[in-house]
Design a protein around this nucleic acid. Structure first.
Length: 960
RNA sequence: GCGGAGGUCGCCAAGCAUGGUCAAAGGCGUAAGACUGAGGCUCUUAUCCCGCAGGGGUUCGUGGGUUCAAAUCCCACCCUCCGCACCA
């Protein structure tokens, strides 16, 4: 077994033995409750879960080290349909699917056989998942774990829905879904052979009337064009039926009649005939009472909506083309017995004014694009372009009745509603593209009746939800407007269905609460579930009154306890647990859950809990990519959490993920990077381990001061970043930046014997512990500590430990090195000797005076000069000062004001001593002899007269 | 279509709110050197272009604008990713 693995197992066991992450209420300490949306158990946990949860764990560990009483619970989602579907595919012997289970999920064959039981399958993945979560080192309190099919949890959900219903947030209604007639169930995206993303869309049907009162319901997405009608198109070769539809006689395509039956209509087909039977007949436009003819149109598709189309040649390219085609073919008139004068007299009717077009946009566009006829593929393109234009910038003309002058965009919906109200229009759902079910059946739209909805349209509920968001921290902040728009946009949500696992709706027979609707406030259940399990509380005891008391403080506890057969003490204990832990302080998830789960969570808390129990913070992160692509089992790039930890180790997996991205950016999992990180951690183990052993001396030089000062900055940066869940920034600083500091120190110092270094490494381990807990525990124990670093005290920034002199001196060294390098690069030589000349004292006086001036305001050269002249101390150098001043001013523009402030505090640096001190280091670096002089020294070695160029913070350099 | 997020020096990615301290952090990759029996590890240095002196030139999706000064502010455009419902 590898060393990494040994370390991981050792500490995982020690944490468990010490019950380190089991959190109980402790009034003497502040609490933090963090959470992660429970994963759905139809497959193994993967690195995407690991990414999101690693952020939670880093935050939890950070807060724990800061002294908070941290609760991180975890559970498993079993509610819904896919688990059943998956199990059925195994039962059916679906080979492709079974292969995925074996090869990707790593399910052993003996287990696989038992997957015909969906509950067994869920339990298998749950057990695997728990193992993986423990192995990656998430600091979870497992006593609170549950699955969503457990009776005690279902009692909780029943309580939730009873309350929602009482508050009027649950409504009843109808809802259109994509429906498989064979399976007799809704066909979601995952269940489709083709047609992903296609949703039911409502056509407006204009009820044109034949003379005998029969109705031709012509389908359109543009009801406003009714004012521009010239005729109806029927496909002469297609079978239409005459049917009794809700006590009217409709003429629609055969297919349409079948569809209408699924849409809450009474349909009785009376007779069938070919479309040609009606060609040449006239009908009435119910809005204008004008009469128009029925003409043959072969482009009409009987599978789309009613198969009845009305023609608006001025604004619809297809209609114009069909009309033009027809008018060119006198033989067709004869065939259908049409009056040629009547057909030739049909002219487009213009009803929409649109920018960039004249009277007849469709005509113009067809001519411009050179479209040949209605079979030309460009006709579709023209249609899309024109519809878009007219929708966005079109205005209805004077011939459009009461809608004249209105913009299409605004009036479209109102117009359809008005027409329906007048009884001249109706609606019908259909799919814009074909959807085929996995069972190869063509899907239709079905209107489900008596559906139960969560009424997210309710304006008061929306208002409350907005209030929740107002008092909530969202990380990153940029996601906040998104939440607000989602709250505004959400409509009724069908919250129950008839199949799958889940909690039965307390009042509706045969309905089960849908998966996204049973996971909105379950975080509250965590607060009491340990008690429920420990005391073996039975579902029967978890009455509505019990939950009312625990979560809302309602009712008389003596009475409640008695009727529920619980002890008053226990009831009170659960109430106290809830009050202690709730609300949760952080919930973190991937951004895909913003428009559903996270927003539902906000809605439901708003509905059910008082403001003091509303969520405190929500974190949102990107979606994990694998080697630059979305992770899919079918793509063969699926990486399980268990597999990653086995291969790369827990710490490397966690850190590899967290270094990928923060905010809402999508992190990319690259195996090469993780491997590299694993090596880095191996090296860190010995690197830090060596320092821990050797750091015993009481050294207290500027270098130690520098290191300790740098460390203060790192502490501050990591802490600030973690507070805002900027896990990448935090880890970047905790790992690489700090490590680089220590490496620099070691190079400069030449040994690792200073106690101060040991102290810095201890702090370093603490900064790193939330991210790489196993490694840090191991190294922590090597320092002689007997406690866990997981609960060690988080380092606090200490301004008193910052030595600005030490910091500036080190800056000077690196600046001098950069300058020297630049010179060497330009000269393209390897030097044998490098000489530095440091600035004379009077130059420092000049320099610092100018620094002060630039800090307080604008610097005027002549004023400055006047001051220097007035000061007798500068008298001997006044001629040299004049050219110096502009040079200094220019150099200072490149220096930050905080550094300038430090310069004034520090005053004069003994640069010569500093550089002499660093001479050995510089000698090694440049592989050259180093000499240092002050320019004020008598006759220094200076063959090229460089010394005069010396400036404070910028010694002159001579290279040979 | 609607809504959200983004486009930075080979790749990933900071910076942009509060314009000058930005040729622009860090990681990866690459090159050279060190260590080593050897190295796929680790360590050091370098890594936009030009420059025999610490300087100069051209960069931050594209095109304009504001300003003494723009990766950062304003306008327009192009491109990428994500969500859009009964499904977890």
């Amino acid at each position: 077994m590898s060393l990494t693995k040994q370390i991981e197992q050792k500490w995982q066991k020690r944490w468990e033995d010490a019950k380190l992450f089991e959190a109980d209420p402790d009034p003497s300490r502040q609490k933090k409750m963090v959470s992660f949306p429970f994963p759905y158990m139809n497959g193994p946990l993967h690195v995407g879960h690991a990414f999101t949860a690693s952020r939670v764990d880093a935050y939890a560990r950070f807060k724990r080290m800061q002294g908070f009483n941290v609760l991180w619970p975890w559970s498993w989602h079993w509610t819904g349909q896919p688990l059943l579907g998956a199990s059925q595919r195994v039962a059916r012997g679906d080979e492709a699917y079974i292969r995925v289970l074996c090869e990707v999920d790593g399910v052993p064959e003996v287990e696989l056989k038992k997957f015909v039981d969906p509950l067994y399958m869920a339990q298998y993945y749950t057990n695997e998942g728990r193992f993986a979560v423990k192995s990656i080192g998430f600091s979870v309190d497992w006593r609170r774990e549950f699955t969503t099919v457990m009776p005690v949890f279902q009692k909780f959900i029943e309580w939730q829905y009873k309350n929602l219903k009482e508050k009027g947030y649950v409504t009843r209604g109808t809802h259109p879904v994509v429906w498989c007639p064979k399976d007799k169930s809704p066909t979601g995206d995952h269940d489709r052979q083709s047609g992903e993303g296609v949703t039911p869309e409502e056509y407006t049907l204009i009820k044109y009337r034949l003379d005998d009162g029969k109705i031709l319901p012509a389908a359109t997405f543009r009801p406003e064009t009714v004012y521009g009608i010239t005729n109806i198109w029927l496909n002469p070769d297609v079978t239409y039926v005459e049917a009794d539809v809700d006590n009217e006689t409709w003429i629609v395509s055969q297919q349409a009649a079948e569809k209408l039956k699924e849409q809450q209509r009474q349909v009785t087909v009376k007779c069938a005939f070919l479309g040609r039977a009606l060609i040449g007949k006239f009908f009435t436009n119910p809005l204008t009472n004008l009469k128009f003819p029925i003409l043959p149109g072969w482009f009409v598709d009987p599978k789309t909506a009613t198969g009845v189309v009305y023609s608006v040649p001025a604004h619809a390219p297809y209609d114009y083309l069909a009309l033009r085609d027809l008018q060119k073919k006198p033989e067709v008139f004869v065939q259908f017995g049409l009056d040629s004068a009547m057909v030739l007299a049909i002219k487009p009717v213009s009803i929409i004014k649109v920018d960039g077009f004249g009277e007849y946009p469709a005509v113009e566009l067809v001519e411009k694009m050179g479209i040949v006829d209605q079979n030309d593929s460009k006709a579709n393109e023209a249609t899309n372009e024109l519809y878009k234009k007219e929708f966005h910038s079109g205005l209805l003309k004077a011939n459009c009745g009461i809608y004249a002058g209105q913009s299409i965009r605004k009036v479209k919906d109102a117009l359809s509603t008005d027409f329906k109200g007048l009884g001249v229009a109706d609606g019908m759902y259909d799919l814009k593209e074909a959807v085929v079910c996995r069972c190869m059946t063509q899907c239709v739209v079905k209107i489900l009746s008596d559906q139960w909805f969560l009424n997210y349209s309710d304006p008061q509920w929306k208002d409350l939800a907005h209030q929740v968001i107002t008092q909530l921290n969202i990380y990153p902040d940029s996601a906040k407007p998104w939440f607000n728009t989602v709250i505004d946009w959400l409509r009724e949500w069908a919250c129950a269905r008839t199949t799958g696992f889940g909690t039965p709706l307390p009042w509706g027979k045969g309905w089960i609460i849908e998966t996204l609707s049973d996971s909105t406030i379950y975080m509250a259940f965590y607060t009491i579930n340990a008690q429920i399990k420990r005391n073996n509380i039975q579902p029967d005891s978890l009455t509505f009154e019990v939950f009312d008391y625990i979560f809302l403080g309602k009712g008389d506890k003596i009475l409640v306890a008695k009727t529920a057969n619980l002890s008053i003490e226990l009831l009170d204990e659960m109430r106290r647990e809830f009050l202690y832990w709730y609300p949760f302080d952080l919930r973190n998830s991937a951004k895909e859950l913003v428009p559903n789960h996270l927003s539902f969570c906000i809605f439901h808390h708003a509905a059910l809990f008082p403001p003091q129990h509303w969520p405190k913070a929500i974190g949102v992160n990107g979606m994990l990519m694998v080697e630059g692509q979305g992770m899919h089992k079918s793509k063969g790039n699926f990486v399980t959490l268990k597999g990653a930890v086995e291969k790369y180790g827990a710490d490397a997996t966690r850190c590899g993920l967290l270094l990928g991205a923060e905010g809402m950016d999508d992190p990319d999992w690259r195996a090469d990077n993780i491997v590299d990180l694993k090596f880095k951690f191996d090296s860190l183990l010995s690197f830090a381990g060596n320092i821990i052993v050797s750091a015993k001396q009481d050294d207290d030089t500027a270098l130690e001061h520098w290191l300790v000062s740098q460390m203060q900055q790192r502490i501050s940066d990591v802490t600030t970043a973690l507070e805002e869940l900027k896990t990448r920034t935090a880890l970047q600083n905790a790992l690489f930046e700090t490590w680089n500091d220590i490496k620099w120190y070691l190079q400069r110092k030449g040994n690792s014997e200073a106690k101060a270094l040991g102290e810095v490494v201890r702090d370093w381990l603490k900064l790193l512990a939330p991210f790489a807990p196993f490694l840090c525990e191991e190294l922590w124990s090597q320092t002689g500590e007997t406690g866990f670093i997981s609960i060690a005290k988080w380092p606090i920034y200490d301004a008193g430990k910052v030595d600005v002199m030490a910091l500036e001196q080190e800056n000077l060294v690196t600046d001098v090195m950069a300058d020297t390098n630049n010179i060497l690069k330009a000269m393209k030589i390897s030097p044998s000797r490098i000489v530095y000349y440091t600035a004379a004292y009077w130059k420092w006086r000049v320099y610092l005076k100018i620094v002060e001036k630039t800090l307080t305001g604008e610097v005027k050269i002549n004023e400055l000069m006047r001051e220097f002249v007035a000061d007798t101390a500068f008298k001997p150098h006044i001629k040299d000062i004049a050219p110096l001043v502009p040079r200094i001013i220019k150099a200072l523009t490149k220096i930050s004001s905080s550094r300038k402030t430090n310069m004034t505090k520090i005053n004069v640096i003994d640069e010569k001593a500093l550089l002499i001190n660093a001479a050995k280091f510089l000698k090694d670096r440049f592989n050259a002899d180093i000499a240092v002089y002050s320019e004020s020294e008598a006759q220094p070695f200076d063959p090229k007269h460089r010394a005069v160029m010396a400036m404070p913070y910028q010694p002159a350099i001579y290279v040979e």
